[in-house]
């Protein structure tokens, strides 16, 4: 074992880790933001909106994440849309993650008793305010546990960005291996970084859950 290959390339590992964190964080935020309207559409009065949202959920959950990344990076240029590798990776990962997140959010919204919706309507509260002030705060308790445990999957998913030419942690590892021929040391170092990041996310998950339990 020759650990100098890791220590001498430490700056590369640090910047790659930051890239991984940035991609994962952007995906987490964007996918939740997109998933909310999709989840609400699923229970819409209009058949067309329900159909779109159900179709989105099925397609994104049946498609490999990698194929969506390829669509964004290799497929879109066919129509003259050239995305930066990082943007393409975030786009692909977000589209898939939103499909999963919308299911968690939908289940959470359904867990709020129907009487609450009816009461809002009886009191003449517009749907937008009812959702924002009454329904969503209650639904959060059901939504957050599966949503936060999905975050670790998103972190793992960000490794796929390396396959569309992003030098995040996995991409940097592959590059370093190919010119140092030290796969064992590099992969162990990268694995440890991933496990640490994972540990942080699990900590965040605990914190968030505790916070919402205290508000009960």
């Amino acid at each position: 074992m020759d650990w100098t290959v890791v220590t001498s390339n430490a700056p590369l590992f640090v910047s790659a880790t930051l890239n991984t964190v940035a991609i994962a964080a952007a995906t987490i935020v964007l996918s939740v933001v997109i998933a909310f309207p999709l989840a609400i559409m699923r229970d819409s009065r209009f058949g067309f909106l329900r159909w779109v949202s159900a179709g989105y959920s099925w397609t994104t959950r049946a498609m490999p994440t990698l194929s969506l990344l390829f669509l964004a990076y290799y497929g879109l240029p066919q129509f003259g849309i050239y995305l930066d590798p990082v943007v393409a990776a975030i786009t692909g990962l977000t589209v898939i993650a939103a499909g999963y997140n919308m299911e968690y959010i939908r289940v959470g919204l359904q867990a709020v008793p129907a009487g609450q919706y009816e009461a809002c309507r009886a009191l003449g509260i517009p749907l937008s305010i009812a959702l924002r002030r009454l329904i969503v705060p209650q639904a959060m308790r059901t939504i957050l546990p599966p949503l936060t445990s999905n975050l670790t999957l998103l972190l793992k998913g960000s490794a796929l960005a390396s396959l569309v030419a992003v030098t995040e942690l996995s991409g940097q590892a592959m590059a370093l291996i190919s010119y140092t021929y030290k796969p064992i040391e590099i992969l162990i170092a990268v694995a440890l970084i991933y496990l640490c990041l994972n540990g942080v996310l699990v900590g965040v998950q605990r914190l968030v859950e505790q916070r919402y339990r205290l508000q009960d």
């Binding site: 670790t152 793992k156 694995a191």
Partner: peptide, 23 residues
């Protein structure tokens, strides 16, 4: 189970493909 559920599949595959031949 913590290690193998926490690591990206890509890293595990690279380990099997690149690191195992080294040993």
């Amino acid at each position: 189970s913590w290690v193998f559920r926490g690591l990206p599949e890509l890293i595990v595959l690279l380990g099997c493909y690149l690191a195992l031949p080294a040993i």
